[in-house]
Deep mutational scan, measured.
Amino acid sequence: MTEYKLVVVGAGGVGKSALTIQLIQNHFVDEYDPTIEDSYRKQVVIDGETCLLDILDTAGQEEYSAMRDQYMRTGEGFLCVFAINNTKSFEDIHHYREQIKRVKDSEDVPMVLVGNKCDLPSRTVDTKQAQDLARSYGIPFIETSAKTRQGVDDAFYTLVREIRKHKEKMSKDGKKKKKKSKTKCVIM
């Protein structure tokens, strides 16, 4: 069974824990209790493949930012979460993405942009803004509501699919490099 290491990042209060708990335990946590770091595991079937999701729910508070490099190193894919009623959390996505790329030393890291709290009427981040940002990053965008469960499975499952595509691409690139290195030079 394939294991996928997913990391949920975003500013404090955007609903990272609520999304994760909704996926794992099928219930909505409405009281806000700032996370330092929590880890969850769940076995699911995605596109006919049974897999184990190892999900790291991270601290959004700035005082825990020193811990970010460590979990970013171990993560295979990242859910970059903002709240649709919090423009600052949307603007912060850029910083999370840049930090992930720096730590992973790669421009090509599996990510999904997630606009959470889409059940709320007080939207300050337009869907088109988020779609445009995701398009500019070359990553999928999904709106979710941890409260109603809308888009929750889709967000995590899409990230797994992005990781699969990335692994497939990397193995193809690896095979191309191996083929090239088999060419021999004969000096007579």
Results as ranks from 00 to 15, higher is better:
K117I: 14
Y137T: 07
D126H: 08
N86W: 02
V112P: 04
C118T: 12
S65V: 08
V45Y: 02
Y40N: 00
C118L: 13
E162W: 06
N26G: 05
R161P: 14
N26W: 15
D119I: 01
D47I: 01
R41T: 04
D69N: 04
L19R: 02
A130P: 12
M170A: 15
G48F: 05
D33A: 07
E31D: 10
A66T: 12
E162R: 12
K182Y: 02
H27M: 10
G75D: 01
I24N: 07
V29C: 09
V9G: 05
V152A: 07
R73I: 07
Q131I: 07
K182L: 06
F156S: 07
M188G: 15
I24P: 00
Q22I: 02
D33T: 05
I21D: 03
F90Y: 14
N26E: 03
K117A: 14
V7Q: 01
D38A: 01
S17M: 01
C80K: 01
K179N: 04
M111T: 04
V112L: 10
I187L: 13
V160S: 11
V109C: 09
N86H: 01
L52S: 05
M111H: 01
Q22D: 12
R73L: 06
G75Q: 12
M188K: 12
E76M: 06
V8N: 01
D69W: 01
D132G: 10
I55K: 00
R97A: 11
E63R: 00
G115W: 06
P121S: 13
F156Y: 14
Y32R: 00
D47N: 05
L120T: 12
D153H: 04
I142K: 03
G48H: 11
P110M: 03
Y4K: 05
E162I: 08
I142M: 08
V152L: 13
I55E: 00
E3A: 03
V81P: 09
A11R: 08
G48K: 09
R123E: 12
E62T: 07
D119G: 09
V81D: 06
N116E: 14
G15H: 02
Y71A: 15
D126K: 11
D54L: 00
N85S: 05
R102P: 03
Y157F: 09
Q150R: 08
V109M: 11
E49K: 11
N116Q: 13
G10N: 03
D38Q: 01
D69A: 05
T58M: 08
D38E: 05
D69V: 01
Y4N: 04
Y64W: 15
G174D: 13
D154K: 08
R164T: 13
V160I: 11
R123Y: 09
E49T: 05
Q131W: 11
N26I: 03
F28P: 00
K172G: 06
F141N: 05
D57A: 00
R97F: 15
L6P: 02
V114A: 06
E162D: 06
I24F: 05
R73V: 11
D30L: 08
E3R: 02
G115C: 12
P110G: 04
T35I: 01
D33C: 07
V103Q: 09
K42V: 08
V103G: 06
R68P: 04
C51M: 05
T158L: 08
L53A: 05
M111L: 10
E3K: 02
V125R: 07
V7A: 07
K128I: 10
K184N: 07
T124W: 11
T58Q: 01
Q129L: 11
V114F: 05
N116P: 05
L56R: 00
L23G: 12
V109Q: 07
A66Y: 04
G48R: 10
V44C: 09
K117S: 14
G151A: 11
I84N: 14
F78D: 07
A11K: 06
D108Q: 07
T2Q: 15
Q25P: 00
A155Y: 01
K117L: 15
G60M: 05
C118Q: 07
T127L: 08
L120K: 12
E168D: 12
V114G: 01
V112R: 03
D173N: 12
I93W: 12
E162T: 09
K176L: 13
Q99H: 14
Q150H: 03
L6T: 04
G174V: 08
H166D: 11
I46M: 07
E63S: 03
D54P: 00
V114W: 01
V114T: 02
G77A: 14
S17I: 05
D132A: 08
G75C: 13
A11F: 11
A18N: 03
A130G: 08
T127V: 08
D33G: 01
V7H: 14
H27F: 11
K165G: 14
V114H: 05
Q61D: 15
Q129A: 13
T35K: 00
K177C: 12
K167V: 11
T50G: 06
G13A: 11
A66S: 04
A83D: 15
G13W: 14
Y64D: 07
K165R: 12
V109W: 12
T20Q: 15
E63N: 03
E168F: 04
K167D: 10
T2S: 08
V186E: 15
K16M: 02
I36G: 00
V81S: 11
K167S: 12
K16G: 00
D153R: 03
G15Q: 08
Y96H: 09
P34T: 01
C118K: 11
P121W: 12
K104I: 14
K179M: 09
H166V: 09
A18L: 00
K42R: 12
V14H: 13
D47F: 04
M67E: 00
S106E: 13
R68C: 15
L6M: 12
F156A: 10
Q25W: 04
P110Q: 01
D126S: 10
S106G: 12
D126Q: 08
T20H: 00
G77L: 08
L52A: 04
V9N: 01
M111E: 03
P121H: 12
Q22K: 06
D47M: 04
V112T: 05
A59F: 15
E31F: 03
V114N: 00
F28D: 00
Q25R: 11
L113Q: 03
H27E: 06
H166L: 12
Y4S: 08
I21T: 12
K178E: 09
S122F: 09
K165S: 08
Q25C: 08
L120E: 13
V14T: 12
K177V: 08
V152D: 05
L23W: 13
Y32I: 00
H94L: 09
R97S: 09
R164G: 07
K5I: 02
K128R: 10
L52Q: 04
K104M: 13
N116S: 13
I46R: 09
V125W: 11
R41F: 03
F78L: 10
G12V: 04
E98G: 05
V103I: 10
L56A: 01
I46A: 03
G115E: 08
P110I: 02
V114Y: 01
M170W: 15
K165C: 02
C51S: 07
V8R: 02
Y71R: 00
Y64Q: 06
K167I: 09
G75V: 08
Y137V: 11
R41W: 02
V152F: 04
L56D: 03
G174W: 14
L133Y: 09
V125A: 09
E49W: 05
F28T: 00
A83W: 01
K169F: 13
E3I: 02
H166Y: 08
T158D: 05
V8G: 06
A66C: 14
D132P: 13
F156N: 08
R68M: 14
Y4H: 06
S65A: 06
K165W: 06
S122G: 13
P34E: 01
R149L: 03
N86Q: 14
V14I: 10
Y157L: 10
S136E: 15
E62Y: 04
R102H: 12
H95N: 13
V29Q: 07
F28E: 00
D119N: 10
V152H: 05
S39F: 05
K101M: 12
K176C: 10
D108H: 13
T127K: 07
L23I: 04
E76N: 04
L53I: 14
Q150K: 05
L56G: 10
Q25E: 07
T2K: 10
E3C: 03
S39D: 03
S65F: 04
F141G: 06
Y157G: 07
A134P: 03
D119C: 06
M67H: 00
V114D: 04
D105P: 08
L79W: 03
K184R: 08
F156T: 12
Y137W: 08
K178C: 06
R135V: 12
P110F: 02
